[in-house]
C-alpha cells in the first residue's frame, strides 16, 4: 500500500501503457515496453524526484523503449563515441565506432543488453543497448 502511494505518479503512467506493476517483498517493480524514449526519460526523472538518487532501493524501474529491427537508433552516450564490437561483450574486440548522437541502423538483438547495429560507415557489430535510443521515423 505504502509503496503504491509513494510511486503513484509512476504507476499512473505505467497504467496508460499497459506496463506491469508488481510488488515483491518490500520492492515495487515496474516492468515493460514504452513506445518512446521521451516517456522513459520522463519516468526516470519522476523516480529521481520522488526518491532522490534512488537511495531507498524500493523500486526496480525496468522500462524499455520498443525498437524496430531494421529501424533507426540514436547513439546516446554521455559525450564520447560508442564502441561497436565483434561480439556481445565488453571483452570483444572493437570493430568500429559510432559518434555521439549518430543515427544508425538496428540490425538485430543478441539479448536485451547487446544489440547488433550497422553504423554510417557500414560497420556492423554489437553495441550496448543502454546507449541506443530507438527513434521513430
Amino acid at each position: 500500500m505504502e509503496l503504491t502511494n509513494k510511486y503513484k505518479e509512476l504507476i499512473d503512467i505505467a497504467k496508460q501503457y499497459d506496463i506491469t506493476v508488481s510488488e515483491i517483498g518490500n520492492v515495487l517493480k515496474i516492468d515493460g515496453v514504452l513506445p518512446s524514449a521521451d516517456i522513459k526519460n520522463k519516468m526516470w526523472e519522476i523516480y529521481d524526484k520522488i526518491d532522490p538518487n534512488f537511495r531507498s532501493g524500493d523500486l526496480i524501474l525496468d522500462v524499455k523503449v520498443s525498437a524496430q529491427i531494421g529501424g533507426k537508433v540514436k547513439v546516446i552516450t554521455q559525450s564520447g563515441n560508442l564502441n561497436i564490437r565483434k561480439g556481445p561483450g565488453t571483452d570483444q574486440p572493437i570493430v568500429g565506432k559510432a559518434a555521439h548522437h549518430d543515427i544508425i541502423t538496428l540490425v538485430g538483438k543478441a539479448n536485451e543488453q547487446w544489440w547488433l547495429v550497422r553504423d554510417n560507415d557500414g560497420e556492423e557489430g554489437y553495441a550496448f543497448a543502454q546507449y541506443l535510443e530507438p527513434v521513430r521515423d
Binding site: G25, G57, L61, D62, Q113, Q130
Partner: peptide, 23 residues
C-alpha cells in the same frame, strides 16, 4: 557523478535484481 547515476541504475534494473542498494 550525479549525471551518470540514472544510466547506471537503468543498466542494473535490466538485470532483473531483487533490489539495488546504492546507499
Amino acid at each position: 557523478k550525479k549525471t551518470e547515476l540514472p544510466i547506471l541504475m537503468q543498466k542494473l534494473s535490466a538485470l532483473n535484481p531483487v533490489k539495488i542498494d546504492n546507499t
